[in-house]
Design a protein around this nucleic acid. Structure first.
Lengths: 180, 180
DNA sequence: TGTCTCATGTAATCCGTTACATGATTGG
DNA sequence: CCAATCATGTAACGGATTACATGAGACA
């Protein structure tokens, strides 16, 4: 799959849930997919233009704030994109890189980094609780909900793993700090 | 921190452990930092040239395969880079994006994706065992080892979390598949 | 009236991968 | 001697962020 098709997939997928303007699309991606996906305006608007040119999305009105809707051809394209193999992004974890070179950085600075990561994970957990509550509060039994909950669960597992690791880590860093 | 400084940090950090050629550097980054970092030749060689020009690394011989060594100025720069705030990479998880739009993809295809992710996590765990064994086998009590083990532990926690999530996920996908 | 949010876009720039090109060295 | 690995680079391309520019509508 071409790398560019990733943005296309996210945009078509979101419009597959409900029609939206480009602006709302970005908000939705930030709020709902935020913990595992991101897109910037610089990607979204050109992508929407291309999709409209190719007849994969349409605007039902002519005003500025008319939302885009996905077409049948768009749905077909979305399904084709989703079926393509997952593309691995090369990992780049700044925290672990710093810890790996922790001897140069010093045990104290490492502790602070790990504490920050732990706090961030706690915040993520709180955020997931809020999203769960919001999903549960929606009246109709949405057919998408079960899938959405799978992604939330992934985030929760990851965050809890981070917290457990951080606690081990802090204990170990105390030992290292005391020894040096 | 400028984004470009990331590669500089990884290269200086690796040379802070031991002198290496550019080629060996790439192998080391692939083998040792592979689960949380990556660099390509296209980044490594220009970076090495710049570092040499700035006196942060030197080559002690003049032949092709002379390893680069970090200088005192280089060590200083490394410590400064490590002390800068961690830079978050925008998340892009193709698996979770597909699951989120799972209704379009279908429960069966989702199952396959999750199974793949689970298998990959198992492989990672096996890889971490191998690295742990290798580190433990090194004779001298290396002052870097405790820090390296922290990063391994992070990988293990993440991989185990992925496996636990995948198992829950598969059960839930069975339920979804049966209902539809 | 002025500021905030909604809304759409473009251009510069940066990062990073990929592909290509070249040649030395080593081991079978 | 031939293949694989070691070793060094460069050029093209693509993708993504960032900053900039513009303007409408709401509301205080």
């Amino acid at each position: 799959m071409a790398r560019g098709a990733q943005t296309e997939m996210a945009v078509l997928g979101a419009l597959g849930v409900m029609p939206m303007t480009g602006y709302a699309l970005r908000q939705a991606i930030l709020d709902v997919l935020g913990h595992f996906w991101s897109e910037s305006f610089g990607q979204i608007y050109p992508t929407l233009s291309n999709l409209e040119r190719d007849g994969l999305v349409v605007r039902l009105g002519s005003e500025r704030s008319t939302p885009y809707s996905i077409t049948d051809a768009g749905l077909e394209r979305l399904r084709a994109l989703l079926a393509e193999p997952v593309q691995q992004v090369p990992p780049r974890n700044g925290l672990l890189l710093r810890l790996f070179f922790g001897r140069q950085l010093g045990a104290d600075a490492c502790r602070r980094l790990v504490l920050d990561a732990r706090a961030e994970a706690e915040q993520q957990l709180a955020g997931f609780d809020a999203i769960r509550a919001e999903i549960a509060s929606e009246p109709e039994t949405d057919v998408d909900h079960p899938y959405w909950l799978l992604t939330i669960s992934a985030g929760e597992h990851a965050a809890r793993a981070t917290i457990a690791w951080a606690d081990e880590c802090l204990a170990e860093l105390d030992r290292i700090g005391a020894a040096s």
